[in-house]
Design a protein around this nucleic acid. Structure first.
Lengths: 202, 202
DNA sequence: GTCTATATCAAGATAGAC
DNA sequence: GTCTATCTTGATATAGAC
């Protein structure tokens, strides 16, 4: 029985609309500057209605983060199939490129590194933790394989490589260059891919 | 005449104490989580007195940023003299290392990338802009020279190299690794120097 | 210039009717 | 579950006495 009531469908659609608005606002203004009023206005419902779906501002952010993590996982699984990316390094590069594209498209929610209330809420969010660990495991496997194949620096703990790649998703250099207006999106991405994988020195 | 009144000395000392407190709190909690009450408490004066010295919270942050920029400039000038850093690349590396040490010591104020009120205030702060440009010019010269000498990737616009190095001052990977507790400070710095200058790939 | 006390306001969250 | 109206709090900033 996969039959779902009309009401449940509407509910789900509304929650998706909420998460989409949160995602957009989080990418545009960041967590602290995003107000719950703005989310409600963007969705077109009353603020009190929002709180029937999500219990707090932190819960809203958590839902948005789960959304991007799931999109990233889906992307990873797509790349696993794709024969055009033969090596693990190729796949890591493709995923990093995708990450930057999402950011340039204004769809990458960015959370402050230091916000204790938010961190506490995320740590208590089982679904969020599950998705984060799943993505970390998938990428960790690629990283270790890449190191064994001699294509990634094996002198770095896999953890360090993982964090460094995660950090590309919120790299301020990207928005700085974008704001500068001297380079196109594709060009920006290629330059940052270069600094990330081959470094600044020669 | 370098004679300065005792009163003026006290004033200056107090303002330095304020800036030191702001710097510490900015490094620890970030701009949004830092409250003016906390600054006042840390300095040990009333909040109203703070506002006699600085006109706004943004002005406080500006003063702290000017402080680190001036420390960085002093460091650059020191490195210019130091014969043990022969090439420009060596100097850039030394400065980057210093930057990370400051961050690990909890003395690097971190501002949110997206905060319009703060950005507006900083852009209107002549001294801040002057120090920022001066530091950029000094580093820009090293970068161009390094590229001409073939030690830095000459395919990257100097601007991109500059931003990438600036970003090391607030790299979230540093605090992540520190929080993980699996590596010592020196080890963390050496690993991030490697990802920065020689990249992840081999 | 420093203090205590207060104005002011933005924003997260909730009450209660429908 | 949705709404309008309201509560509550925390934080920036200021008044006014000394």
């Amino acid at each position: 029985m996969t039959r779902v009531s009309f009401k449940a469908q509407m509910l789900r659609a509304r929650e998706e609309a909420i998460v989409a608005a949160v995602n957009r606002l989080l990418a545009e203004k960041g967590f602290d500057a995003m107000t719950v009023d703005a989310v409600a206005a963007d969705v077109g419902i009353a603020k009190a209605s929002l709180y029937k779906h999500f219990s707090s501002k932190e819960a809203l952010a958590g839902a948005a983060m789960i959304g991007v993590l799931e999109r990233a996982i889906a992307q990873v699984e797509r790349l696993e199939q794709d024969a055009s990316h033969a090596t693990e390094l190729d796949r890591l590069k493709a995923l990093t490129r995708w990450t930057m594209q999402v950011q340039l498209a204004g769809e990458m929610p960015s959370l402050p590194a230091q916000n204790s209330a938010l961190r506490a809420a995320l740590i208590g969010n089982k679904t969020y933790l599950d998705r984060l660990m799943r993505l970390s495991d998938l990428l960790g496997a690629w990283i270790v394989a890449g190191q064994q194949a001699g294509r990634l620096d094996a002198g770095l703990p896999p953890e360090v490589v993982l964090y460094t790649l995660f950090a590309r998703a919120c790299d301020p250099v990207l928005s700085l260059l974008k704001a500068g207006g001297n380079h196109g999106d594709e060009q920006i991405i290629e330059m940052l891919m270069r600094t990330c994988f081959t470094g600044l020195a020669r």
